[in-house]
Simulated assay, not measured.
Amino acid sequence: MSSPQETSVKSIVVPFESGMVPAPLGRLGQREVVERWHAVDRSAYDPHLVAVPGDDGEGWAAAALVTARPHTDYLKIVDAIGDIPAAVEAVVARARGRELAQVKWEGWTASPEVAAAAGFVPLSPPVTQSQDAAGPAGGYVRWLRGGVATEPPYYGQTTHFTCGAVTALVAQAHAGTLSRETLDRGAELTLWRDATNFPACEPVGLAVAVRRAWPSSPVTVHLDTDRPVLIDHHPEDEQEWRALLQRTSRADAGRIGVPIDPRHLTLNAVRDAVGRGEHVLLLVSLAGMPAWPGRAEGVRAAGRWRPARRSRGAADRR
């Protein structure tokens, strides 16, 4: 175990190791909470304990289990036990010290009153949630800089290949073009079917499908290559027909007036678009976050719906 690290608030940070319970943590009680912490493999999410020392200088007065996806801009409190306000304050101070954007708090045991007293606001409940979902019913967030962002509805994709379609649907719902009530599996699979390059969506095909579904929604594709994308991992004999479908998508885009901008969309351009209230759809590599090489995920940046593009890597700030 590495040495504890001092934070700006009087607290210590120690790694969270599956199957091991530090003696000071065990003395805080709430055995059922600690057992839940160990019931899930959290190794890919930088799990650590943020603890507040007790008055005796040896034990802990409070502790929080904290996680976060790698290369992202937040910390997440799974639970806090002991002097909960002190533990949460220590986590927030740690996030501020790292200049992070937000702290989230899973709603296992946090009440709305306790969360509000610590400066957190409720996250909107998911539009849908699978029956076997193992997470808490709700959660909370505290933004640390830049004001409070307008939260889009959260819809969890029901397949591993409909991320692009779901991202576009969520953007439309956030913009008010699509009602939350119609954000369901039928809408997910319908848009995916219109946009897919089998099995996932490619940027131009997704933009064409969005324009066809919502003719009044302006959409621009930023794609810094004229070659087919997202097909390199397929066998060579399967790349040809997918490339043909992408050429067809480009022809469709030209016919219905979907611009394809060949310039690389920089982070500054993304910030500017978000500042103008536009929606930016990004395809990000999952190698950096959950450490899944060869996988990608669609994410919505914010604002009014605008471009879909291929990105070689970005940080999930949700």
Rank of each mutant, 00 (worst) to 15 (best):
E89P: 00
V66W: 04
P85H: 13
D79I: 00
L65V: 11
A62C: 08
A86N: 03
L100K: 11
L75M: 10
G82R: 00
Y74E: 11
P112S: 14
E113V: 14
V92Y: 02
V88W: 00
R96Q: 14
V114T: 15
A110P: 07
A61S: 13
A63V: 15
H71W: 05
K104Y: 14
H71S: 06
A63T: 15
A110H: 11
A90M: 06
R96Y: 02
P70Y: 08
A63N: 03
A90T: 09
T72W: 06
A110R: 03
A61V: 07
W105S: 06
A80T: 08
Y74W: 08
T72F: 01
V114G: 04
G97P: 05
A115T: 08
L100Q: 12
H71R: 10
L65A: 11
A61G: 15
R94D: 13
S111Y: 05
L65P: 04
I81G: 01
R96F: 04
G82A: 04
A110F: 11
A86G: 01
K104Q: 13
P85M: 10
Y74Q: 09
A86R: 06
D73L: 02
P70R: 09
E113F: 03
L75P: 01
V114D: 12
D83N: 13
W60Y: 12
V114F: 07
I77Q: 01
R69C: 08
T72Q: 10
A87Q: 04
V66S: 02
K104T: 15
W60K: 04
P112I: 10
V88E: 03
I84A: 10
R96K: 15
E106R: 14
T67Q: 09
E99Q: 15
A93K: 03
A95D: 10
W60T: 11
P85G: 11
L65R: 04
P112Y: 07
D79F: 04
V88K: 00
A110D: 07
V114W: 00
P112K: 09
E99C: 10
G97L: 03
G97N: 12
V78E: 11
E113Y: 06
R69M: 09
V66K: 05
Y74T: 07
I81E: 02
P85Q: 13
K76W: 02
T72V: 13
D83T: 04
P85D: 08
A95C: 09
W105I: 07
A115M: 09
V92D: 06
S111T: 15
A110K: 07
A62D: 08
I84Q: 09
A101I: 09
L75I: 02
G107Q: 10
L75F: 10
A61L: 12
I77A: 02
I84R: 10
E113S: 14
E106P: 02
A101D: 15
R94E: 15
A87R: 00
A115L: 06
E99R: 15
I81Q: 01
L65C: 07
A80Q: 01
T72N: 11
V78D: 01
A115C: 10
A95H: 05
L75G: 01
V88D: 05
A90C: 12
A62F: 03
A110E: 10
E99K: 14
A61K: 08
R96W: 05
S111V: 12
S111R: 10
D79H: 12
T67G: 03
